[in-house]
């Protein structure tokens, strides 16, 4: 007989029960005895108070646990990336840094700010990888596996940063009046006049472009007025710098790559 069968047979002893008659008579007997010691039926109000306080006592621990969980989640999302920002890619807590950065990213709702922050995090991680690989104590023959892994991570981070920069929506940072002024200067050279907007509103690029192209002679004005916004230029510049950093990294010029990445980080940081 197996142990399981034996346990089933033991479980069957549950059928042992006192006599029904004794149960009833003993119930009455006990009820009489406790009634003599002051037992009574509770009032509705007393029952309500007991139910309410029991509910509060039973739920206080789960409520604390839930509160603590939410608190840790919120604090982790808001400040976790600061706590782990100094963790290097060869540290065991590096995964915590990545998670905290992702948590921080999830708290940013604006898509441009999100992309900018993602690019910044990727660039910073790439910087840290370069710094680690630039360290001769780490970058040894014995650590070649880790070095190869970090190199792959570096390329991944650079690609992430470039992708995020591409996502940033180009917003014209050069106001229309600047464009008008450029067009105005160009037309002044040809004895033409650009009328001021009677409503005092900004002039659109299309208006300026039409004004310039209708004459069909002012190539300078057209190119100035329809020029790419400054932010796009900034993103392009950053992408170029990231490409340069990648090339330097591939050539194992880690320190120079690091300088380039710092430059890119600065550009991303300064971008509005």
């Amino acid at each position: 007989m197996t142990e399981k069968d034996f346990i089933v047979k033991l479980n069957n002893l549950r059928s042992t029960a006192p006599d029904e008659a004794w149960l009833k008579s003993n119930r009455e007997l006990l009820l009489n005895q406790i009634s003599n010691s002051g037992a009574a039926n509770l009032s509705v109000w007393k029952t309500f108070v007991i139910n309410f306080s029991s509910l509060a006592k039973a739920s206080v621990r789960p409520a604390y646990a839930l509160g603590a969980f939410v608190f840790i989640l919120v604090m982790g999302s808001l400040f976790g990336n600061q706590v782990f920002s100094n963790v290097k890619p060869n540290d065991s807590l590096y995964i915590a840094r990545i998670i905290s950065e992702k948590a921080k990213l999830n708290t940013v709702l604006n898509s441009d700010s999100h992309d900018k922050l993602a690019a910044q995090f990727a660039t910073q991680r790439a910087q840290d990888i370069s710094a680690v690989l630039a360290d001769p104590k780490f970058n040894t023959d014995q650590n070649q596996t880790q070095v190869a892994s970090l190199s792959a991570s570096f390329n991944q981070e650079i690609n992430t940063a470039k992708t995020q920069l591409d996502h940033i929506t180009p917003v014209p940072s050069a106001p229309a009046d600047v464009a008008v002024s450029i067009a105005d200067n160009a037309k002044d050279n040809q004895g033409m006049q650009v009328a001021a907007n009677p409503l005092g509103q900004t002039v659109s690029y299309a208006t300026v472009s039409e004004a310039t192209s209708s004459k069909g002679s002012d190539k300078t004005a057209t190119s100035s007025a329809t020029s790419t916004p400054a932010k796009t230029n900034s993103a392009d510049d950053t992408t170029v710098i990231l490409d340069q950093a990648q090339k330097l990294f591939d050539q194992k010029n880690y320190n120079q790559a690091l300088d380039k990445l710092k430059e890119a980080d600065q550009l991303i940081n300064n971008a509005n």
């Binding site: 009820l31 009634s35 002051g38 037992a39 509770l42 007991i50 139910n51 029991s54």
Partner: peptide, 18 residues
């Protein structure tokens, strides 16, 4: 919750809870 409720009722001398 039920355990707390029953204990509180017993402490309040509730016959039905007993």
């Amino acid at each position: 919750f039920k355990d707390k409720q029953t204990l509180s009722k017993l402490r309040s001398h509730d016959k039905e809870a007993f």
